[in-house]
């Protein structure tokens, strides 16, 4: 089901998509999800990947969507959850754990902020048949919060705290997200960076490097901080 979002192609996707459905995604497409997603970030990766702690649930059976985020949420005295807004956290910090994480979790869609490098996509995502969706903004916390219909579970909240726990969320029309990396490992951000870099020399014209240099500093305008 493809529609338009402004000038962009927009579509809805389940959270256990087929390989064909994933292969049809193009960088720059807008995506909304229906189904179940779970959160997981550095706390979860350290515990599962580095410490070898068994996963608290069969994530593979639950969902193929891992969201790099922690919700603005609290847990009531009676154990129920109060979840208002959802916003991603920057993903590049987690790239070193992703290869093993794909094996453990069977994830096929990673959602986050800012993406990873095309090198990560080609060496880790592509062999695992996975794509990367970026949140929009950042971030559309209230819109995403509205897309969460129910909090099904929270795992490892005692071990990791609310911000780092695994939140299992039932979602409907959950988005918007933008396809940052497709099944070929192409990166939308890197495509845009390259276009912008062409203009940078003109913008910098007339400026000189600072008198006091920084050790390790570079003037290569195609550099990134990730």
């Amino acid at each position: 089901m493809a529609e338009r979002a402004g000038k962009l192609k927009s579509l809805r996707l389940g959270t256990k998509p087929t390989r064909e459905e994933l292969a049809a995604l193009e960088i720059g497409n807008v995506v909304y999800l229906d189904g179940v997603v779970y959160t997981g970030r550095e706390g979860v990766y350290q515990r599962a990947v580095e410490e070898g702690e068994p996963l608290p649930a069969d994530l593979k059976a639950l969902s193929h969507v891992n969201f790099h985020c922690s919700p603005a949420a609290s847990i009531n005295d009676d154990g129920t959850f109060n979840l208002a807004a959802v916003t991603a956290t920057a993903s590049f910090r987690f790239s070193k754990w992703m290869a093993r994480w794909f094996e453990l979790s069977g994830a096929k869609i990673i959602i986050g902020k800012g993406g990873m490098t095309a090198e990560d996509y080609k060496s880790v995502f592509v062999p695992n048949g996975a794509v990367y969706l970026t949140t929009v903004g950042y971030g559309t916390g209230a819109l995403l919060g509205r897309g969460v219909s129910h909090v099904r579970d929270v795992f490892w909240k005692d071990e990791l705290g609310i911000a780092q726990a695994i939140w299992v969320l039932e979602v409907e029309n959950f988005g918007p997200f933008i396809v940052e990396s497709d099944m070929g490992g192409n990166s939308l951000f890197e495509r845009e960076n390259a276009k912008i870099a062409a203009n940078l020399d003109k913008v910098y014209e007339g400026t000189r490097p600072a008198i006091l240099h920084r050790y390790g500093e570079s003037d290569d305008r195609s550099d990134e901080v990730i």
Binding site: A5, L8, A72, A84, T89, V136, G137, G139, G141, L143
Partner: peptide, 28 residues
């Protein structure tokens, strides 16, 4: 095209935050 879409989504997000009394961004 992409930047415009992002700004429109953010403008919508502010409205939803106020209507639902939700945090506009979960990274508070």
């Amino acid at each position: 095209d992409l930047s415009s879409f992002v700004l429109q989504a953010m403008l919508e997000n502010y409205e939803v935050a106020k209507a639902d009394r939700r945090a506009m961004c979960a990274d508070t």
